[in-house]
């Protein structure tokens, strides 16, 4: 003989309570898991920022290519236009050198032209251009997280 059912399904109150209970418990479990996952995603980073200020426009000569060592970029000025080129070779990450009409990587010999396009060597693609804007306090603001096309530049 089967024992009487442990639950009393004919009791609507029991049904309602169970439903509500399992829903609440299920929600609590799901929400806690989601919270734990979100917990693991950092909100602040202690790495050097990808956005940095590169000084004032007038710090750069009229027609110049300036290497910013710490940030590993070149800042180019032509008249009143400003551009920023990454100095990190797309092959294996060495810092490229400025050559007479382009850039040259000392590690495996990749050669790039003034636009950053690969001319020869093992690099798979051209050097990256980064966005340059003007900050509120009149400083050049480079954002290495924003890549732009070779043709884009900041005009003052």
């Amino acid at each position: 003989m089967n024992p009487p059912s442990l639950n009393d399904p004919t009791s609507r109150r029991g049904f309602f309570q169970l439903t509500l209970g399992w829903l609440a418990a299920g929600f609590a479990v799901a929400a806690s898991s989601a919270a734990a996952m979100r917990f693991l995603v950092p909100n602040v980073l202690y790495e050097p920022s990808l956005r940095f200020k590169a000084g004032q426009p007038d710090d750069y000569a009229e027609s110049s290519v300036t290497f910013l060592e710490e940030e590993r970029v070149f800042l180019l000025r032509q008249g009143n236009t400003f551009r920023c080129l990454s100095a990190i070779c797309t092959h294996l990450g060495c810092t490229v050198n400025r050559a007479s009409n382009g850039y040259h990587c000392p590690c495996h010999g990749s050669v790039f032209n003034e636009q950053g396009t690969v001319l020869s060597g093992p690099a798979p693609r051209g050097l990256e251009w980064f966005s340059v804007t003007l900050s509120k306090d009149n400083r050049l603001l480079v954002d290495k997280s924003q890549r732009v096309n070779a043709g884009q530049y900041l005009v003052l």
């Binding site: 009487p4 442990l6 029991g14 309570q17 509500l20 609440a24 418990a25 609590a28 929400a31 919270a35």
Partner: peptide, 29 residues
């Protein structure tokens, strides 16, 4: 063999689950 029906505990179950769920909501808020 039988302890008795469990449904007398359902109220507790519901109440506690709601309490825990509610606290999770407050914590999230």
């Amino acid at each position: 063999m039988n302890e008795g029906p469990l449904h007398k505990f359902y109220g507790w179950f519901t109440g506690l689950s709601l309490l825990v769920g509610g606290l999770v909501v407050v914590a999230y808020y």
